[in-house]
Design a binder for these strands. Structure first.
Length: 271
DNA sequence: CTTTAGGCCTGACGGC
DNA sequence: TGCCGTCAGGCCTAAA
């Protein structure tokens, strides 16, 4: 389940191998993603040098002089550099062949991913224009989070996953951050006191940075640009651990659905 | 405005 | 063994 650490791990792994280089050919094997992959993509990328590989929220931006390839991993997507001769797997939907012996493959069993072409300033695209602050950036702090939550009655966990509040935090890291901050997920967002929003900001940063250092979390599908699974799963404190003992107090971890998502927390450590 | 529900899609899993 | 219902979830859209 790619969240910010997984997308950023992918970006960091691929950027040194792709930036400044050219895709010799692009093959759309199955363009039925969240939106249809533009059939003009091979022509658009032919003989063009990749200027930069950036990330905004969970989107990857392949920057070219004449436009931007916007790519999202959805919930089961991965991007991997494979040796050219390696047999294609089921769900290898896109192939970007480099000059040389390797090719970039977009693999996505559930096809919730996205791959579209943007011209002009990509940050003005509707998908990116209304996004909130990056969780690891300076604009995300206790004051801005408190302002974003003010008056909101929805559960703080649901709001943490709202990209207008802060980007990059999905279902796994939302539960993990609230555990680290000692805040109960069902609390109304607007009920958090100043000290709590400060703690939550710090906890979001800590868990995302720790996951980044471990190369992300692999539950099932995720692999980084080199095909490696993320190692953070063993460090998850509450996610997926319903009924197991809390690592701090040994109370059984609880689970309930909030905002149609499974939510995990420790009943004694959190509130 | 905020909040909630549904749809997209496949694979894994449990029950019968 | 095989079929079927359920679950998983990022993100968008529509409706309340």
């Amino acid at each position: 389940v790619p969240e910010l650490p997984e997308v950023e791990t992918t970006r960091r792994g691929l950027a040194p191998l792709l930036v400044g280089r050219t895709f010799r050919s692009v093959e759309i094997r199955d363009g039925r993603l969240r939106e249809p992959v533009p059939t003009a993509l091979p022509a658009l990328l032919a003989d063009r040098r990749l200027g930069a590989l950036e990330r905004r929220a969970k989107y990857l931006l392949f920057r070219y002089a004449h436009g931007t390839l916007l790519l999202h991993l959805g919930m089961s997507g991965s991007l991997r550099l494979a040796p050219r001769g390696e047999p294609l797997r089921r769900h290898d939907h896109l192939r970007f062949t480099l000059v040389g012996s390797r090719e970039l493959r977009f693999h996505d069993p559930r096809r919730f991913g996205l791959c579209v072409w943007l011209t002009g300033d990509p940050l003005l695209d509707a998908r990116l224009a209304r996004l909130g602050p990056e969780p690891l950036g300076d604009e995300f702090d206790g004051d801005s989070l408190r302002a974003a939550l003010r008056g909101r009655k929805a559960a703080v966990k649901v709001l943490l996953m709202d990209p207008a509040v802060v980007v990059g935090v999905g279902n796994i890291y939302a539960s993990e951050a609230l555990f680290r901050a000692g805040i109960r997920p069902a609390r109304a967002g607007g009920s958090l006191r100043t000290a709590e929003t400060e703690r939550l900001v710090a906890a979001v940063r800590e868990v995302l940075l720790a996951a980044l250092r471990a190369g992300g979390t692999t539950l099932r599908d995720y692999v980084d640009g080199g095909g490696e699974a993320g190692a953070f799963r063993v460090r998850l404190r509450v996610y997926g651990r319903a009924g197991e003992a809390c690592t701090v107090c040994a109370a059984p971890i609880r689970c309930r659905v909030l905002g149609q998502r499974s939510t995990f927390w420790c009943p004694t450590c959190q509130g």
